[in-house]
C-alpha cells in the first residue's frame, strides 16, 4: 500500500530539493562584521552585549523589559529577513516541524540531536559547538534569532545553551513559531546553505547560569529554588507529564524549600511573554538580587523561566538546574517533599 506510492512521493521530493539551490546560499555579505578566528574568553556575564550587528527591535512593547535587546517581534523579523549578520534558528520539541514549513532563511537546531552530547548526559563541548556553528554558517558576531514551538520552550533552551558558550547576540522571537504562523506570514521549505563560518572554539562556561545537583543540595535553605513544573508534578501526584512516561522519575514531589511558579504563568495565551508589570506580579515572591535556581523535568521549561528572570526582569544571578526532576527524583537519598507546601530544609544529618 505504502510502497506503491512512495516512489512518486520521493520523486516529488527530489525535484523539490533541486529547486533549493537558492537565494539564500549567497546571503552572507557580512564580511565587515566578522573578526576572523578570534577566541573570545568566556564572559562572566555572557548576556551583556558588546556589539550588536543588526539593529535592535524598537518595539515599545519590549521597552519595559530589563533587556529588550533580547527579543524581536514577528514584524521586525519579517522586515529584516536576509539582513547581513542575521541568522535565524528554529528549535522545536517536534523535530520535524521545521520540515513542514519554516520562516524563510531559518535553519534547524535540535536540542537532542545537536545540543546534547550523544553519550554523556551533558551538553556538547566547545569544539562541537564551534563545528555546529560553522556548519550553519554562523559567525561569532552574528545576531542569532531563535524561535520554536510550545511558547518557545525549546527556543529558550537553545538560547540558554548558546549562552553557555557566550554567544554575544542571541535573541528570541516573541511568541515563537505560533506568532509567525498565526499571522499567515511567508514560510519556506528551502533549507538554506550558508558558506561555512570560522566560528572560534569557546570553552563552555557552565558556572554562571547552570546548576548541578550537588549545588542545588547546598542551596536548600540558602538560595531560593523555583519549581516551574505543573502543580501536579510539584505535589508529587504525577512523576511525569501525561504520555511521557519515559521522562519520568521513580519518586514524585519537589526539592525541599522550592516554591512552585509554573513556567506558563510567564506566557500569554498567544505564547508571547507577559508584560513587565504582569511578570513582576508572578515572580513577586523572588528577590531579584538573590541568586536563584530554577528547575523542571529536563531543563527546558526552566530555560523559559531562566530567560524571563534574567532578560525580562533583569535578575543578575539565575541558574538553570538542567538535571532537574529526572535526575533529582531518581537519585538515592535525595531529599524530597510531597504536597503543596515548599517545607523547610531537612535537619542536618
Amino acid at each position: 500500500m505504502k510502497a506503491s506510492k512512495k516512489p512518486v512521493a520521493l520523486r516529488r521530493y527530489v525535484i523539490h530539493t533541486l529547486q533549493r539551490i537558492g537565494p539564500y546560499a549567497c546571503d552572507t555579505g557580512d564580511a565587515q562584521l566578522t573578526g576572523g578566528l578570534r577566541v573570545t574568553p568566556p564572559d562572566p556575564k555572557p548576556w551583556e552585549l558588546r556589539k550588536v550587528p543588526v539593529e535592535l527591535d524598537p518595539n515599545p512593547a519590549f521597552a519595559a523589559y530589563a533587556h529588550p535587546e533580547r527579543l524581536v517581534s514577528a514584524d521586525w523579523l519579517s522586515a529584516h529577513l536576509g539582513a547581513p549578520g542575521l541568522k535565524i534558528i528554529e528549535s522545536d520539541e517536534d523535530v520535524l516541524l521545521y520540515d513542514i514549513g519554516h520562516i524563510p532563511t531559518a535553519q534547524k537546531v535540535d536540542w537532542h540531536l545537536n545540543l546534547n552530547d550523544p553519550t554523556v548526559r551533558d551538553y556538547i563541548d566547545g569544539e562541537q559547538f564551534a563545528e555546529l556553528m560553522r556548519s550553519k554558517g554562523i559567525e561569532r558576531d552574528d545576531t542569532v534569532v531563535i524561535y520554536g514551538d510550545k511558547s518557545n520552550w525549546w527556543a529558550a533552551y537553545a538560547l540558554w545553551v548558546f549562552t553557555l558558550f557566550g554567544h554575544p547576540d542571541v535573541r528570541l522571537l516573541d511568541g515563537g513559531r505560533d506568532a509567525w504562523m498565526n499571522e499567515q506570514r511567508e514560510t519556506s521549505f528551502d533549507v538554506p546553505e550558508y558558506p561555512r563560518s570560522d566560528y572560534p572554539v569557546v570553552t563552555r562556561d557552565d558556572a554562571p547560569i547552570r546548576a548541578f545537583a550537588a549545588e542545588v543540595r547546598e542551596a536548600i535553605g540558602r538560595e531560593p529554588l523555583v519549581d516551574v513544573r505543573s502543580p501536579q508534578e510539584y505535589t508529587g501526584e504525577r512523576t511525569h507529564m501525561p504520555d511521557y512516561p519515559e521522562e519520568g522519575a521513580l519518586r514524585g514531589g519537589h526539592i525541599p524549600t522550592a516554591i512552585s511558579i509554573p513556567w506558563a504563568k510567564a506566557a500569554a495565551p498567544d505564547g508571547r511573554f507577559r508584560s513587565r508589570a504582569e511578570l513582576e506580579e508572578v515572580y513577586a515572591g523572588l528577590d531579584p538580587q538573590t541568586p536563584t535556581i530554577a528547575y523542571c523535568r529536563i531543563g527546558e521549561r526552566s530555560s523559559h523561566t531562566w530567560f524571563v528572570l534574567t532578560h525580562l526582569l533583569g535578575f543578575p544571578n539565575v541558574r538553570n538546574y538542567d538535571g532537574s526532576w529526572t535526575e533529582w527524583g531518581n537519585s538515592v537519598r535525595a531529599p524530597i517533599v510531597t504536597g503543596p507546601e515548599p517545607d523547610g530544609a531537612p535537619a542536618a544529618e
Binding site: K2, L96, I100
Partner: peptide, 23 residues
C-alpha cells in the same frame, strides 16, 4: 514489515521525508 523495509532502503534525509509523508 513492508514499512520497515521501506525505511531501511533510504538514507537519513529520505527517511525524514518518508516519515513526513506518513504524517
Amino acid at each position: 514489515q513492508e514499512i520497515v523495509d521501506d525505511f531501511a532502503a533510504l538514507d537519513d534525509r529520505d527517511r525524514a521525508t518518508l516519515l513526513l509523508e506518513f504524517a
